[in-house]
Each structure stands twice: as C-alpha cells, then as structure tokens.
C-alpha cells in the first residue's frame, strides 16, 4: 500500500473531504494494470517528462498521492504535476497537501509539483500539453447546477458561500453529467497525442453511454474503458473509473 496523503489541515467547511470516490481513484491508479499502462506509455526514455493535471483536486489527496508516489506509479520521478480548482480554498489546501505528502516520501519518489491555480476546468491550459488528466467530478444528479463561480473568491466567505463551494464539488446537474460533459468536450484539445484521462463516474451518469460517445469522437481512434475495480459498491452511487486515450497503433 502506498501512503495516502495527510489532509488533516484542510477545512472541510469549504473544501470537499476525501471520500469513497477519492480513495477509489487512489486504489485504481495503484493497480498493476494501470501502473503498467503508465510506465509503458511514460517510461523515462519516452521524452519529454509527462505533465499530470488533476482538475478539481479539492483537498489535494489524489494529486498529492500521484506526486509523492511518482516512482512506484510511473517508474521514475521525472513527472510534473499541477492542479486546477474553481475553489480558491481548495487551491491552497492542495498546495499544502502535496508539500506534506512529498516531504514524507522524499526525493527519489516524488515528482515536481508546479502549482494549484484557480480556474474553470481546463480553461487555462495551453492546448496539447497534458499527458495524464485525472478528474473526480461533481457527479451527483441534481435538479440544478449551481451557478459557476466567476469573480475572485472571498477572503472570508459567508456560510452561504461556503455551502455553495461544497455544492459545486458534488452537484452535477442533469444525469450528474453537466460538468463532466464540459470536461470531456475539452479533452481532445487539452490532451497531448499520448495523453490519457481518468474520469470517475457514478451509475447515474450512464457510463456505458458515455464510453460509446467517446469512442465515436472524430479525429483519431479514441478509446474508453472502465478500469480496475469497476462498479465498486459505494452506497447507491456505484462508482467506476473510465480511462480515455488515443491509440496510435501500439
């Protein structure tokens, strides 16, 4: 078992607390099937070093895990990681989580963490740069999607504003897919040619239909497969993780 980052410094009034979905991502990315996939695709000799992005890191537990355990997961420590979250408090929490996690595993195991920046999904990304993208979306089907954040976050949020930050972390609108659809739409532009995305879905998101849609994308042979402990029971949510990538005749 690789160490799980410590997030005890995070204020869960404002930032999503690591839960079943977060831990499913850690478990899945540590499976031999996935470490073999990553190590083959991003071996040390396969220049340049991969750029890893987590969208919506919340506490930073997942990107902290990937950064601190670069060597066991990718086979080497030449990886760059960063994160984008709509919630400013999540950005500062993530920075600290990664710092603590990499201090614990130390040099030789850790990659280089760049930054957590505040933004809406992959909007600030320069096209074609991201090699590994991880997304634990707001996937719960809800009647309405909270209005997106637009201006700068408050230094001292009110109780209502804190509630909205947490709502943004789980409320997914129709089929729980409204935010995930926007992320998927941006994948062909965001990912590099060798890029791969891991997206968490719940049963309400209709994962089979989502995968079929991805496979029909234009401009390349897109693949989408459920990986690892698919459909693990987590209450009513029944979570799974879909790997999305382009296959260039490997």
């Amino acid at each position: 078992m690789l160490p799980t980052p410590d997030t005890s410094h995070v204020s869960y009034n404002r930032v999503y607390e690591p839960a079943e979905d977060s831990f499913l991502l850690l478990d899945t990315l540590s499976l031999p099937s996935e470490t073999t996939f990553l190590q083959t695709r991003f071996s040390k000799d396969a220049l340049p070093p991969p750029l890893v992005l987590e969208v919506g890191p919340g506490s930073g537990v997942v990107i902290g895990f990937l950064t601190a355990n670069a060597t066991p997961l990718f086979g080497h420590d030449h990886i760059l990681t960063f994160a984008i979250d709509v919630n400013r408090f999540a950005c500062s929490a993530t920075g600290l989580t990664v710092k603590k996690a990499t201090a614990e595993t130390g040099a030789g195991s850790s990659g280089v963490f760049l930054d957590a920046v505040q933004g809406d999904l992959t909007n600030p990304c320069r096209p074609g740069q991201v090699d590994v993208l991880v997304f634990n979306p707001p996937y719960v089907p809800t009647d309405e999607l909270p209005a997106p954040l637009t201006k700068e976050g408050n230094e001292k949020p009110t109780f209502e504003e804190e509630s909205k930050l947490l709502e943004l972390a789980y409320a997914g609108g129709k089929d729980g897919m409204e935010t995930t659809e926007r992320l998927l739409d941006a994948l062909p532009e965001t990912l590099s040619a060798r890029g791969v995305a891991y997206v968490l879905l719940c049963a309400g998101n209709r994962p089979e239909e989502v995968k079929d849609r991805i496979r029909s994308w234009a401009g390349g042979s897109w693949k989408a497969e459920t990986v690892g402990t698919s459909g693990r029971q987590a209450g009513w949510e029944r979570l799974s993780i879909v790997r999305v990538w382009r296959d260039d005749d490997q």
Partner: peptide, 17 residues
C-alpha cells in the same frame, strides 16, 4: 488575471464566459 498569495485566478468575469 490576478495572482495573490502565489495563486493565479483564471476565473472569468461573467461577460467573458
């Protein structure tokens, strides 16, 4: 885009979204 306390803010004002 403002950078404060080391964190850049790429959220857009409503009229640019």
């Amino acid at each position: 885009y403002a950078v404060r306390e080391g964190i850049a803010n790429f959220l857009l004002p409503t009229h640019l979204v």
